[in-house]
Nucleic acid binder design. Structure first.
Lengths: 219, 219
DNA sequence: GCAAAAGTGTTATTCTTACACCCATGG
DNA sequence: CCATGGGTGTAAGAATAACACTTTTGC
């Protein structure tokens, strides 16, 4: 029985949640889009296999990566019995350039709201990943993983809105973030729009303390 | 690469959370306790493999069963590379008699508060399962899976207390359950203690409606 | 009649939600 | 000077948490 890892790689571009898909160059499902993935090597852990695939497709490492679920229906790959351990990863917008040429496959960011037909059972995997991401958003700080180191409050709210696919109230959002005390204001401002927006940094250390007390994200 | 399923089978006996362990008859870890499990057959799904193992160990089917996480460190089994897909199952007290003789291994319920040393990385799997169960308890109705069809409110509260390992306020607990409107009172009473306790039945259909509205368990 | 578990409400506090205007800058 | 997105507070309603006594039965 063979074991692969498939990775749902999310990012946010233009206020939209996107996922990385690769076009298959060989049968089965030749020409269709699929999630990036590959075989787990004999001497590497599942996590390491996922990290390797991620690096091969995008060139990035050191990003948020979490195991999702394992899929192993007989027949999910028409050639042979394959069990795949699915992962999802979050890449900040400023690092979501693709690693051109590191892989022979054609890869592209696809909008979650307008997905093509996917090979194998990858549609199911993707839906599961989105559900997990939405849940995690509500009681963890995964949202920050999709932003650069410094970001404005509007940008942070945009991440939440893109993932949850609904509008949030600006003042209530800011109050909740404020109460969590997990942001450190910088002295920098994002210019380029109209009024410049103050930039903040995620203060993870403070969040760890909150977790210990059982205080969590109330979105 | 070989794929196995391991199952964390929970039940509640004498107001305590217990887990099914089997004593290993062969090396490695001969004589130590381990989670029940076995190889995934070539033609069965992961879920079916888990259900089969569960039935072989306990004789029960048609119980709550959920995939937990996959573990695949090289070296987690000293003999060869094995990826295990862990599941957890919930069995109600009235069905937790062991299927004697259906399997050659020696199986026993062990208190979660007093676990023996476990083989392989099974301690880690068990801790992960307990964490998942505790989380699910707070926003799903898994708790009911550990009770017989009819149960008293005190028994239900006992399930929550055993799993969360903390005392809950009786009146607040009852009010919350009441508000959810997921229990149907029967005309039966549990006798044998002092004052007889009214028995209730879980009305799953009502819960589905709540889920649709996003209303969840507030424990 | 008394020990033991079942059952039952109120209040204070905290959290959530809805809602509208002024501010700083770029053009 | 005006268009654009940034920034700020309040009040009503809902949810949560703390808390003690009466009732029904078995022995």
């Amino acid at each position: 029985m063979k074991v692969t890892v498939d990775i749902v790689i999310f990012t946010i571009q233009s206020d939209e949640l996107k996922v990385l898909l690769v076009k298959r160059g060989i049968p089965p499902f030749k020409g269709q889009f699929a999630l990036p993935g590959g075989f787990v090597h004999e001497d590497e852990s599942l996590d390491n296999a996922a990290m390797r695939e991620l690096r091969e497709e995008t060139g990035v490492s050191d990003v948020y990566l979490e195991q999702l679920y394992s899929f192993g229906e007989p027949g999910r790959d028409p050639r042979e019995r394959i069990v795949t351990v699915a992962y999802y990863a979050l890449i900040s917008a400023d690092r979501s350039q693709l690693a051109a040429g590191t892989d022979t496959t054609e890869a592209a960011w696809s909008r979650m709201s307008k997905l093509p037909i996917l090979a194998f059972d990858h549609r199911k995997i993707l839906e599961y990943a989105l559900e997990r991401l939405r849940n995690k958003l509500e009681y963890t700080t995964v949202g920050f993983q999709l932003l650069p180191e410094k970001f404005s409050l509007t940008e942070l709210q945009g991440v939440y809105e893109a993932i949850l696919d609904k509008r949030l109230d600006k003042r209530n959002f800011r109050r909740k973030i404020e109460l969590l005390k997990i942001l450190k204001p910088t002295s920098e401002y994002r210019r380029g729009g109209q009024r410049p927006a103050r930039l903040y940094r995620f203060a993870a250390a403070r969040f760890e303390k909150l977790k210990d007390k059982g205080i969590l994200f109330p979105f």
